[in-house]
Write a protein that binds this DNA or RNA. Sequence first.
DNA 1: AAACACCTCAACCGCTGTACC
DNA 2: AGGTACAGCGGTTGAGGTGTT
Length: 254
Amino acid sequence: MGRQPCCDKVGMKRGPWTIEEDHKLMNFILNNGIHCWRTVPKLAGLLRCGKSCRLRWINYLRPDLKRGGFTEMEEDQIIELHSLLGNRWSKIATHFPGRTDNEIKNHWNTRIKKRLKLLGLDPMTKKPIEQMEHFDNGEKNKTHLHPNTSKGSEENIEIKSLDNNGIEDIPKIEGKIEENMVTWISQENNTSASSYCSSSFSLDESSYPFVGQCPYFQGDSLQQWVDNMDCILSWDTFNPLEDDFLFLENKQQV
DNA sequence: AAACACCTCAACCGCTGTACC
DNA sequence: AGGTACAGCGGTTGAGGTGTT
C-alpha cells in the first residue's frame, strides 16, 4: 500500500555538507535534472536523504542564487511584503529571484527585526512599540491588530484577495493595519508603497526542474554563476565539472 | 591571549497538503 | 476510499565566526 519510504534514516549522513558531496550533487543534477528527490542521493552516490539533497540544492547550490547581503531596498521590500503576507517566507521569496525563503527568513530574524526595534516599531505588527504597549494594557480587543503569527495573521484580520493586480495570494488588508509601515517606507524611499505590489515582480522564477530549460543558463548567466561559485567553492577539486559546463553550452547551441 | 557573549546562517525537525498506490 | 510517501514549508537549533571584556 502507498509509496516506498523516502529513505531509511539508518546510515544516512547528517550535518554540514563537504565539498565532495556538493560536487556529487551538483554534478548529478546538472547532468540529469531533478525528477525525484528520493532517487537523487542514491543515483548521485550520496549518503544523504532526498530531503537533505533538496535543501542543499535549493538553498546553496542552485545556479540562479544571488549571493551577497541584502540591499536596503530589498530589506524594505521584505518588510512590506511581510506586513502583507506574514511569515509566509516562500511567498515572499517569489518576489526576490535568486533569494531563498531560508535566506529571507534568516535575514528577517537576525537583522530586520532589530532594525525595526531600533526604529521603535514592533517587528510583527509594525506598530510603534509604545502603541503596542497601550494595546497590551487592555485595548487589544478593540482593534484588528494582533500578535502576528503565520496563521494568526489570517485568522484575525479581515482580508480578501486583490483584484487583477497581477499577483495572486497577496491579501488586501482591510483597515488601518500597517499604516505606519507603509508611511515609513514611502518616506524613506520616496516611493509609493503600492509600487511594490505592481505586476513588475517576476514570479515563480525560482524553480526550474530541468537545467536545460533554465533561463539562467543562457547568455552570460552561466558565466556569472561560475564566477559566483568560484568565490565560494574550491574549484581545484571540481575539475570534472568543466565537462558539465561544456555539456550545457553544447546543449544551448542545439 | 583567554574567556565569554553575541551573531549568523546552514541544516534539521515536524507539520501540512497533495499525489500515488 | 483510505493509507502512505513525497515535496514543500515555517520554526528552531547549534556550530562556527566575530566582537568585547
